[in-house]
Design a protein around this nucleic acid. Structure first.
Length: 443
DNA sequence: GTTGCCGGGTT
DNA sequence: AACCCGGCAAC
């Protein structure tokens, strides 16, 4: 989890830095030792740093070490690339086509801080020449991308192995320039991020890979945990099944459209573009389906309910096998084929409320309750498992009860008819014209 | 009776 | 998707 950026705060030692070599090129290495010449007995930053502190850098790939002052080092906790002049031949790293690639500097225009670099994209036969700004390149290879840059191990491939995706994308490389201008996602979209945000996302990918491998390992206490998951659902008491949509019960054409205020606005107090993402942890123990909003509580649940007290010295994080982490989008739900899509918003249904209390004690519930019964649609997407199709929380008994017809209570709001009158019918919102629920003055 | 709007049909 | 309308239910 820790990146070089973090390391600098805790301990300088081990931090990856770049430092000038004899040939005027920067080389990456790791801080091996810190020497503080002046006796500063108790410096408050715990590591006795002074302006004269010298850092012993051990360069990668060899035993060569050398001492530098902090101003000479480039890396987390030290200076950045700004103002640095790079020579031709300098090895740099940059994000190209969504993944980190190695490149060599061809030249560096110090005025505009633009560089011409020659990229050694793993997929490309021929080196590509690019213009990059200085702030777009790095001297240090990001830890994660050591793998990314590797031809044989890219995430698109790993994902392919995990799921049933077409392998074509792994073997037939799409020319890079197609991707760059395109709004389409690349094959490994969730990992396809810029440098800054990549760490966290990458961790998800790593976590997915780790979990997948764990779930198949003989050590896994229940190797079928993942497989069970899909089969468990139908009988599970509080989760599984289908979903419903936040729009009005009936008019499908309109509810998905936000032109003319969109019916979805009836139930949302936020702009439609904003989505609230909640992380939900769901117990995958057979027949359980317990859902909670925090990692610690799901682990506590699994430990207490299913696994029993932890043995002394046991730290295998066994709980992790029995829950999944999912994103819950509270707006703009994914469309489903479920017939429940046509049903009333669940916040109108008391059964639903009860179900909700049972299953969403945290987070979501508070949203519901103090949000004056705003509908939450809960398509759960397993962001890192391609083997699980999008799953939806099912609230059994809700929506289908004959006693709760799918008609919304008539709102007290003004309606186009009232406001404009019949003679100005052309001023009505389309919904009113069509005898549908008014969207202009909707609640 | 009027109004809002669901459900479903037509273009 | 846009449009239309019968019909139901809330007012």
């Amino acid at each position: 989890m820790s990146t070089g950026k973090r390391l600098a705060k805790r301990s300088i030692i081990g931090t990856r830095v770049a430092a000038l070599g004899d040939d005027g090129l920067y080389y990456s290495g790791m801080i091996q030792a810190v020497k503080t010449p002046a006796p500063f007995p108790e410096n408050n930053n715990c590591i006795n740093l002074t302006p004269n502190t010298r850092y012993t850098v051990r360069f990668d790939g060899g035993k060569l070490t050398r001492e530098y002052r902090d101003a000479e080092l480039i890396g987390p906790g030290f200076r950045g690339l700004a103002g640095v002049r790079l020579r031709a031949g300098q090895r740099v790293f940059l994000t190209y086509n969504g993944r980190e690639v190695r490149a060599d500097v061809l030249d560096h225009d110090h005025d505009s801080d633009e560089l011409r670099v020659q990229v050694h994209a793993p997929a490309a036969e021929v080196p590509i020449e690019l213009r990059k700004r200085l702030d777009e390149i790095r001297l240090l290879e990001s830890r994660k991308s050591a793998r990314l840059a590797d031809v044989d191990t890219d995430f698109a491939r790993l994902a392919d192995m995990a799921g049933d995706r077409r392998r074509a994308s792994a073997t037939i490389e799409v020319p890079a320039h197609h991707m760059q201008g395109s709004r389409k996602r690349g094959p490994s979209s969730s990992c396809d991020l810029g440098y800054g945000e990549r760490d966290d996302q990458m961790n998800e990918c790593n976590a997915a890979l780790v979990l997948m491998s764990l779930s198949c390992s003989p050590n896994s206490p229940r190797p079928s945990a993942w497989g069970d998951r899909s089969s468990v659902s139908p009988g599970a008491s509080s989760s599984s099944g289908s979903s419903w949509r936040s729009g009005t019960p009936s008019p499908p054409p309109v509810s998905s459209s936000f032109s003319d205020e969109g019916i979805a606005m009836d139930y949302e107090d936020k702009p439609p573009t904003k989505k609230r993402i909640n992380i939900v942890f769901e117990c995958t123990w057979r027949g359980c389906g317990y859902i909670t909003g925090s990692c610690s509580s799901i682990e506590a649940h699994i430990r207490q309910t299913h696994l029993g007290p932890k043995k002394e010295g046991e730290s295998d994080h066994e709980e992790e096998f029995y829950y999944t982490e999912s994103e819950v989008t509270a707006a703009a739900p994914a469309p489903t084929l479920s017939h429940r899509d046509m049903c009333r918003p669940p916040h109108e249904d008391p059964d639903y409320q009860r179900q909700l209390v049972g299953s969403y004690r945290q987070g979501l519930l508070s949203t519901m309750q103090n949000g004056s019964a705003r509908p939450i649609s809960i398509p759960i997407t397993h962001s890192w498992s391609t083997s699980h199709s999008p799953k939806h929380i099912k609230f059994t008994g809700a929506n289908s009860s004959p006693g709760s017809p799918g008609r919304r209570p008539r709102s007290d709001n003004k309606k186009c008819r009232k406001v404009y009158g019949m003679d100005q019918r052309d001023l009505w919102c389309t919904q009113c014209k069509w005898k549908k629920a008014c969207t202009r003055f909707g609640d």
